[in-house]
Design a binder for these strands. Structure first.
Lengths: 349, 349
DNA sequence: GATAGCTGATGAATCGATTCTTGTAAATCG
DNA sequence: CGATTTACAAGAATCGATTCATCAGCTATC
């Protein structure tokens, strides 16, 4: 029919339809007052040419690009490749992408825009999601300064009330898990956290210390680099379980640490759950399918991501956000690693 | 010091430094001929103001945004949420994002731009990665027509040589897996594919038919919706294994189908691997940690994504791409589901 | 029959950068 | 000393859209 130009612009359409740029824009966007006949003609020509507005040009004029970005803070420490079994972030990102698409947005994965060499595109989005901000997160400060709307998933531990954020109920959840381990018979419960200074690690540790103080038991805490993954869990297991008074319960915040801890215990001839009960603070596929399966807190990344995207887009469209209804709920999924065959009652003191 | 404007523009910097826009641009980008003193002053003022170039404006002028997009074709059929255990795509996306960041690009996850309601931003990127295109993929045609550089991961089955693509060696790999199942003692080997018409499903089926013809055995093929996941695998297992002459080996292209197939077999009292050997065409975490662990083809999503991003960015920068060295290699990871205790020799005919 | 109002459409300004072209002063040259 | 480089910087055009202000031609009103 017509030889389509590589990327026809609005000018091509205008010329071919014998009208002005303005008329084309108005006709296609339903603005202004344009006659029926003209609208139809412009539409037809636009279709013939395969015209689609250039999102960048439109974005410049309207200062909105139809893109939201996602900054996954822990990714910064992961460096080159995504270790195996890190499904929380990936599931979060996948769900966020699909949710964004539902609203006509695309999701852009970015690296820390506050870092010197950061690509300019990392600030090009209309709004930003920040997953697990770190203490005094410079990215949050930057976004705030640049007046780029954002929603954090998890607060900045140093500034919990400074910015709009989804507040995980880390304290309550931590206590719940520790109570569960206690009910499963554990009397010396250790905590293994990661090293990132995000709300998850920081508040879980606080809650753990309160819990141990309340119960009058010793606090045994180790933090180990998230990037070490399963291997990191094994290392801590060897260290903790070879001591004089090893713990008989452990709460590992990351699923991979928990999996590694179980593996390490097994290497030392310690049976899970009979001699040691283990729970994970984040549910990974490997916790569901390993043997024994591992009790874990399901943080519902898919649902949380969807809620976060919805909230951000409401902000972008100047609609009110009801934060109170949006705090993510998590669920404790009890599996074999905390289910002793000899019953749930406390072991003899 | 200075009260920073929300987002200072190049004009603000120019005014404050007492020079023209042009000079600011040249000074910051090292172009043109600008005096040392002026450069220093502009830099200082830019820092004071916290100026960073607007990526959208720059993108409009240079017609490159510093963004590459990723279209995951199978995601279109997955609809609302990412089912559990779909780690191939997520790992691919995560790795692609990190690789893009290494090159100063951001990665945008988009939905099919050829669909009517698609957001305009889905065509805004400088280049596009298309994972697992479908037969006569309209997205590939669109990108080609719009002259947007792209790299496909897996060919369009109807047009295998039309576009730049990473060509998986599906035929060879399929034969390899079938040989392995045969060596493990299977004599009636079934194939379970998904329903998407991508190279993976189409070519594996072709290769399977050739293999069965070559070996003079019956071809038993079922295709089942990818979205049904583990449950789909169970259903096929029940259907196939309840028949008069059930297969004693099965090759499921997706990891979740394989996991479901094993579960279904177990429900029917069929032992894996003693009575039935099972292999998966895509390695998922659940295949590594399930019991029994499941033999699978590791498609190396992380490495493949990195190679694809590198290739696309070379194209964007007009550098030559050596495709011959880039075809993704996959590895057969042998696990319990194909390791019979009674030995690997063929059962008696 | 002049004024006001409405319809349909247009030219110019704008978003914030980069890039092409031009211009001016000082320095160099014959 | 006048002509010509050279160094440095500014002005204007451009990218492709949207939006503001305007305008021509009709119709309705009194």
């Amino acid at each position: 029919m017509s030889l389509e130009a590589a990327r026809p612009t609005i000018n091509d359409v205008a010329e071919r339809a014998g009208v002005s740029r303005t008329t084309v824009s108005n006709a296609l966007n339903g603005k202004g007052t344009i006659g029926e006949a003209t609208i139809a003609r412009v539409r037809r020509v636009a279709d013939e040419l395969g015209y689609e507005p250039n999102a960048v040009a439109r974005g410049l004029r309207q200062s909105k690009l139809g893109v939201i970005s996602l900054l996954i803070r822990p990714l910064e420490s992961l460096d080159t490749a995504m270790p195996e079994g890190v499904d929380y972030f990936l599931r979060f990102a996948g769900s966020a992408a699909l949710a964004a698409m539902d609203h006509g947005y695309s999701l852009m994965l970015i690296s820390d825009p506050s870092k010197p060499g950061a690509p300019p595109s990392s600030l090009a989005a209309d709004g930003c999601l920040v997953e697990a901000p770190i203490r005094n997160d410079p990215a949050l400060s930057l976004l705030d300064r640049k007046r780029i709307p954002f929603v954090a998933i998890g607060v900045d531990p140093a500034r919990p009330d400074a910015f709009p954020a989804f507040v995980q109920q880390t304290e309550g959840e931590t206590a719940r898990v520790l109570d569960h381990l206690h009910e499963a018979g554990a009397r010396r419960i250790a905590l293994v956290t990661g090293t990132d200074e995000n709300a998850w690690n920081v508040f879980a540790r606080d809650a753990y210390e309160q819990w141990t103080a309340r119960h009058g038991v010793e606090a045994i805490h180790r933090s180990i680099d998230e990037t070490l993954g399963v291997e990191g869990g094994r290392m801590v297991a060897h260290e903790l379980l070879s001591g004089a008074t090893p713990p008989d319960g452990v709460y590992c915040l990351t699923g991979r640490h928990a999996a590694g801890f179980v593996a390490g215990a097994r290497e030392l001839g310690i049976d899970v759950p009979e001699d040691l009960v283990v729970a994970a603070g984040s549910d990974a596929v490997m916790n569901r399918t390993s043997s024994p399966t591992i009790t874990a807190l399901d943080l519902r990344p898919v649902e949380t991501a969807r809620l976060a995207v919805d909230a951000l887009i409401r902000i972008l469209q100047d609609e009110p956000v009801d934060w109170s209804s949006l705090d993510p709920t998590s669920e404790l999924v009890v599996r074999e690693s905390t289910s002793r065959r000899r019953g749930d009652g406390p072991a003899q003191a």
